[in-house]
Design a protein around this nucleic acid. Sequence first.
DNA 1: TTTTATTTTAACCATATGGTTGAAACATAA
DNA 2: TTATGTTTCAACCATATGGTTAAAATAAAA
Lengths: 210, 210
Amino acid sequence: MKENKEEQSSTELKIFEAAREVFQAKGLEGARMQEIADKAEINKSLLHYYYRSKDKLFEKVYQLSIIRVIPQIVSLLNQDLPLEYKLRNFVDKYLEIIIANPDIPLFILHELNKNPTRLKTFMLNEVGKKITPFLEQLRKESRKGNTVDLPAEQILVNIMSMIIFPFIGKPVFQTIFEMDDAAFEQFIYERKKLLPDYIVNTVIKKTGGS
Amino acid sequence: MKENKEEQSSTELKIFEAAREVFQAKGLEGARMQEIADKAEINKSLLHYYYRSKDKLFEKVYQLSIIRVIPQIVSLLNQDLPLEYKLRNFVDKYLEIIIANPDIPLFILHELNKNPTRLKTFMLNEVGKKITPFLEQLRKESRKGNTVDLPAEQILVNIMSMIIFPFIGKPVFQTIFEMDDAAFEQFIYERKKLLPDYIVNTVIKKTGGS
DNA sequence: TTTTATTTTAACCATATGGTTGAAACATAA
DNA sequence: TTATGTTTCAACCATATGGTTAAAATAAAA
């Protein structure tokens, strides 16, 4: 390992990318070190040369998966913007992030299901605390009669559900709608175009106008 | 194994129930036969006495998990009813089924993600083909201007997302909203009350009335 | 060239795990 | 009682897998 922490060698990155793919597809126990080595086109010894063990490698993949998406998403709710604008932006950018990392949600949620307390403090501090201003904003607008009459938490769950679930349910939807990969990609593309408007319209009550 | 296929011995059922819990929580590779035996309060030998192998046991759990929910849900869309009534009923009963089997969605989707072709023919025949009448109904009402202007598939994905995802994302929501188990149960109960109306209102355009 | 870092090869170890077996204890029914 | 089915226990096997090691080959840097 000649390089320092910042500039990783290309093989180290190749290994990490392969590990990311395999872990995200199969989970910690379902993944095989041999499969990771094969996908990275190196041999198993090198895995231990760069990362000491399966657990260590998994931990890096897991943490980076989370750091790669969650802070970005949370920050979208942390700006001082009018509700409608913020909402539209949130849905749009959230979808962009998930489209770029479509396997991360199921990966995180499966691992979290096996061990629900794993990220508790992180979730509480980096997500829970940082979204309360947004929930407050929702409640404030709700009191003014500007939103649909639902608890703020239910609204947020609705929004997140519609953004994330299509990616988690991809194999089901692809089959029952008889879509090949291209068709599903098109379906997601269509979704990205219409979902921001749809969510804004189902959350925010427009006063005045036609 | 004295009993016939219909009336399983109580231990056989106890084993199956334990296996269901462990497999649904940990997945196929994450599950340990010893843990199943412990939870069933029998020893490992008995697992093989009743079910020949881990794979065989898993297969039964997997298939029953699917058969326990999917046909029920699909049948809700297969009745000859007006859209609004059908929709309200669908959301209500779907939630009921998932509340009774909250771990099944993530379980199925994780296993499906590891092997996306696994249930392809089943999904196609038992789901895909049977929901086309519903999609047609949606399109017909859409042409009459009675629904929101979205492709039928997008509408169905929205609906399924809002029903299923809260259960998949439970560990996240529970943490960021700081809910204990009772509070989360209450949250789901609240959801069951309001979601049918909410979904009907966001899908069906009411003509006339104030 | 000399030195250092990277990569391969191959063999190997330790462990966990799924799986098996046989004997014995126990219960139940014929 | 006899026979059959159920359950436990303990020991054990085979395998896959994660992990390690040593030696050599190769490449790169000094």
